[in-house]
C-alpha cells in the first residue's frame, strides 16, 4: 500500500515542434518525456522503504543499472491495458509499430509489446505492477556494492511484501510468475538503452543532460 500511495502521477508528453521531420519530432518528444520521467523516478526511489538506508554510492549504482527497467515496467503496464498495437509512453504519446520503426525503435517496439502481452496474459494488478517496478530497481545487479547487507534487507523487504500480498489473495504461484518476467524486462531495457544511445551517437539526436548521463552509465 505504501508503493501504491507513492506511485507518481503519470506525466504528459510535451510535443516537440522545433523540426518538420516527424520521426525526429517523435524522438525529441520521447527523450524529453524520458528525461522528466527519470527525475520523477529518482524522487520515487527515495520513498521506497529501505532505499534510503542504502549508502549514497549504492543508491547511485542501483539507479544507474535499473532505471530503464523501472521505467519500462510503467510503459508495458500502460500498453497492456489496451489490446491494440501501441506503446503508451504517456496518455498523449502513443506510438504504433510504424511510428516506432520510422523513429529507429523497431526492436524496442517488438520487445516492449512482448512484455506488455505477458503482463496482460497474467492480468497483472496495480499492486503487482508497483512492486515489480521496485523489485526491478532493487534487483538490478549493480556491482561492486558498498554495503551488500543493506541491499539484501532492501530486496528481502520487497520480496516479503510481494509474498504477503499474493498470500492474502490465496495466490501461491503469482509471486514466482512475476519474478520470472524479470529476464525479459532486463533484455528489453538493454535493447532500449542501446537504441537510444545509437540514435544519439549516430543520428545525432540531442539528449537531455540527465538522460544522457544515465544512458552513458549503462553504455
Amino acid at each position: 500500500s505504501h508503493l501504491l500511495l507513492t506511485e507518481p502521477a503519470p506525466l504528459a508528453a510535451n510535443q516537440d515542434d522545433s523540426t518538420e521531420d516527424s520521426s525526429l519530432q517523435t524522438l525529441l518528444t520521447l527523450f524529453d518525456l524520458l528525461n522528466r520521467e527519470l527525475l520523477v523516478l529518482i524522487g520515487w526511489a527515495k520513498q521506497i522503504p529501505g532505499f534510503s538506508e542504502l549508502s549514497l554510492l549504492d543508491q547511485m549504482s542501483l539507479l544507474q543499472s535499473g532505471w530503464m527497467e523501472a521505467l519500462l515496467v510503467g510503459v508495458a503496464w500502460r500498453s497492456q491495458a489496451r489490446a491494440g498495437e501501441e506503446l503508451v509512453f504517456a496518455g498523449n504519446l502513443r506510438l504504433d509499430a510504424a511510428q516506432c520503426r520510422a523513429a529507429g525503435l523497431a526492436d524496442v517496439y517488438e520487445e516492449v509489446r512482448h512484455l506488455a502481452a505477458r503482463y496482460r496474459a497474467m492480468n497483472m494488478s496495480p499492486e503487482e505492477a508497483v512492486t515489480l517496478k521496485a523489485v526491478a530497481l532493487a534487483n538490478s545487479d549493480a556491482d561492486p556494492l558498498d554495503c551488500p547487507d543493506s541491499l539484501q534487507r532492501f530486496q528481502d523487504g520487497l520480496h516479503e511484501a510481494l509474498q504477503d500480498y499474493e498470500s492474502s489473495r490465496g495466490e501461491q504461484h503469482r509471486a514466482g510468475r512475476l519474478l520470472m518476467s524479470l529476464p525479459l524486462l532486463r533484455q528489453t531495457a538493454g535493447r532500449a538503452v542501446q537504441a537510444f544511445l545509437r540514435l544519439h551517437r549516430q543520428r545525432r539526436v540531442p539528449v537531455h543532460k540527465l538522460l544522457l548521463e544515465m544512458l552513458e552509465a549503462k553504455a
Binding site: K46, L56, M60, Q64, E213, M214
Partner: peptide
C-alpha cells in the same frame, strides 16, 4: 563520480 554528478546531486537533495 564527476561523471555522474546530476544523479549524485539529485540523490543528495532532501526529499
Amino acid at each position: 563520480k564527476e561523471k555522474h554528478k546530476i544523479l549524485h546531486q539529485l540523490l543528495q537533495n532532501s526529499t
